[in-house]
């Protein structure tokens, strides 16, 4: 056993795994908190929707597209001054969360917009006919009806975040990605590389499984 994993410091792997989980959890919560309202707004201001506002939609859509088209590794660097102002450092777990959120919140917002578009227009019309206000339609109809789609979107977002946290490792965020790059890649310690990659793979598998189960439980169609 020791022969195979000679370079692996298990305590360090444990710490790195914990860092990755904290980065993932923190940025997922923040991405949903920002992306959900943004996605709802995108949906509502879209063409032939409840609050159709073509100018607002065009601006929001443009910002989302810019953030999504920016390669994440560039975003990490561009964000450094802003991150320092926001959390006091651009390093470590805390320094990684702002760029992770800015990178994934627009992505999640698009998924939210798409999930809401899947809601039957007839159901929205029926709610209007019952005298529902836009607020009541959003909270009472759109979000509950789109819940399976929203959970599926959150799952995809979480998995995208896993690979982003690995990339954030490059600029000193810590976590499993950081180990993989510093030891596995730069020092040719293949065993460290294998262990970190397997752990990331397991993490992704668990997230997908959990997400799928939740979607299946919430689907009433």
């Amino acid at each position: 056993m020791d022969g195979w994993f000679a370079n692996v410091d298990w305590a360090e792997i444990g710490q790195a795994s914990l860092d990755t989980l904290i980065m993932l959890g923190g940025s997922l919560v923040a991405s949903i908190a920002l992306g959900l309202p943004l996605g709802v707004l995108l949906f509502l201001t879209g063409k032939r929707q409840l609050l159709e506002q073509s100018v607002v939609y065009a601006i929001l859509s443009f910002v989302v597209n810019v953030l999504r088209s920016l390669p994440f590794i560039i975003l990490l660097i561009v964000m450094i001054p802003f991150t320092v102002v926001l959390v006091g450092t651009s390093l470590g777990v805390a320094g990684a969360i702002p760029p992770l959120v800015v990178g994934t919140a627009p992505f999640f917002a698009r998924l939210v917009e798409n999930a809401l578009r899947e809601v039957d227009r007839g159901v929205i019309e029926a709610s209007q006919a019952m005298g529902a206000s836009t607020r009541q339609i959003v909270f009472g109809v759109l979000l509950p009806e789109a819940m399976p789609g929203l959970i599926a979107g959150a799952t995809v977002t979480a998995i995208a975040l896993v690979s982003y946290t690995a990339m954030a490792g490059v600029i000193g965020a810590g976590g499993l990605g950081d180990l993989a790059v510093r030891f596995g890649y730069q020092r040719f310690q293949t065993d460290v590389m294998v262990v970190t990659v397997v752990l990331l793979l397991v993490l992704v598998q668990l997230l997908q499984m959990f997400g799928d189960r939740l979607v299946a439980r919430l689907s009433r169609r």
Binding site: D120, G122, V123, E125, A126, Q128, A129, M130, G131, A132, S133, V141, P144, E145, M147, L218, R220, R221
Partner: peptide, 20 residues
């Protein structure tokens, strides 16, 4: 308008029930 709509019921070809 919302008050008026509460005095007018409506049913649809495809029922338009909330699936959730």
């Amino acid at each position: 308008l919302r008050t008026l709509r509460r005095r007018i019921g409506m049913i649809f070809q495809h029922f338009n029930l909330l699936a959730s």
